Simulated assay, not measured.
Amino acid sequence: MLSFLAKHPTHTRNAHNNPVIFDDGRSSIEFKSPSDSYLVINRWPPAASDAEVASEKVPNKANCALAPPLHWHILQKETFHVLEGKAEFTLDGRELTATAGDVVTIPARAFHTFRNASEEEGLVIEFSLAPSTRERDEAFFRNVQGYRDDCRKAGMQRRLPQVLLFNWRANVVLALPGPKLLAKVMGLLMNFVGGLLIGKWILGYSDTYPEYYHKASL
């Protein structure tokens, strides 16, 4: 094991927090009761303007660490319910806009992402995956978002093997460019080789950290 090559940000202890606050208070995730049909509520700040992105005053167009890259789920469908604001979804190359009250369902294995579509208003959106994987999904969101925000605070780039290892555990796969079938195969290989083999077995990264998640936080 070459764990001395792995680089970690200081982990913020937020496993007991609900909601969990990110981006210096601009965004958050809040986990709902296990009896609720939805898993988590995301709160996003207004989208950044092109000028703000160009000047590097904000991390990206979404203006927060919650912005997911284009990705897909091996087995799960996702259901999104917009509570406040306006969301822009990318679904297999199509752009969809949803406003308060709208429900958007993403089929399993569909390439997708979403962001706040408004530069004036915040976005509040709740979503769920499969009830049977609720515990694993909460662990994934807490770890991924905690790690992203801690890297932001430390001024360091996220390490790809760590990200891929989180994805490996949750059956989440990055949507790579190219023909879709080939992109899916390569994405799965990236999770296995980059996440499990390199990330966990060689560099010693973990797929969950106690500072971010433990079962008692449910």
Rank of each mutant, 00 (worst) to 15 (best):
I202E: 01
G178L: 06
F80A: 03
H16A: 09
S49G: 07
H16T: 15
G101P: 00
L197D: 03
S132P: 08
M186F: 11
A47R: 00
R109H: 06
T10M: 15
H214S: 14
P177E: 05
A47S: 08
N143V: 04
A98N: 01
A48M: 01
S27R: 00
P107A: 04
Y209T: 02
E84A: 11
E84Q: 13
G122S: 12
D92M: 06
A67M: 13
L182W: 14
D207R: 11
A183V: 07
T79D: 09
R134S: 06
A154R: 05
S128A: 11
K32D: 15
K180P: 07
L174G: 09
Y205A: 03
D207A: 14
L164E: 01
S37A: 15
R13V: 15
V40N: 02
M1V: 14
Q157L: 13
G25C: 07
L165P: 01
R134T: 05
V173F: 05
H214V: 09
S37Y: 14
R13A: 13
P9M: 07
P9Y: 04
L39D: 08
V53Y: 01
V144M: 15
V40A: 03
A48K: 00
N18S: 12
F141W: 08
C151H: 05
D207Y: 15
V173K: 02
V82Y: 00
H71L: 06
L218R: 14
L70Q: 14
F22Y: 10
G204I: 01
S132N: 14
W201F: 11
K86P: 03
I41H: 04
P34I: 06
T10Q: 13
T133K: 10
E52A: 12
S118A: 02
A87H: 03
V53I: 10
T99N: 09
E121R: 10
G204E: 02
D24H: 12
V193K: 09
P107T: 02
T113I: 09
L203G: 00
K215M: 15
G195S: 04
W201G: 04
Y209D: 05
G85Y: 01
A65I: 14
K7S: 11
P179W: 03
S33P: 08
R13F: 13
F114V: 02
D36S: 12
F89Q: 02
A216F: 10
F111P: 00
V172P: 02
G93V: 03
L129P: 00
F166K: 00
R169F: 13
T113K: 10
E84I: 12
I29E: 04
G93H: 04
I21E: 04
A117F: 01
R158D: 11
L189K: 09
E211A: 12
G101L: 01
Q76E: 12
E120G: 01
Q162R: 14
D150N: 08
Q76S: 12
G155R: 05
F31G: 01
R115T: 07
A216I: 10
M186E: 15
H8R: 13
H81L: 15
P19N: 07
S217N: 10
Y209A: 04
K77A: 13
F127N: 00
G85C: 07
K215R: 15
H214Y: 14
F166E: 01
L5F: 09
S3D: 13
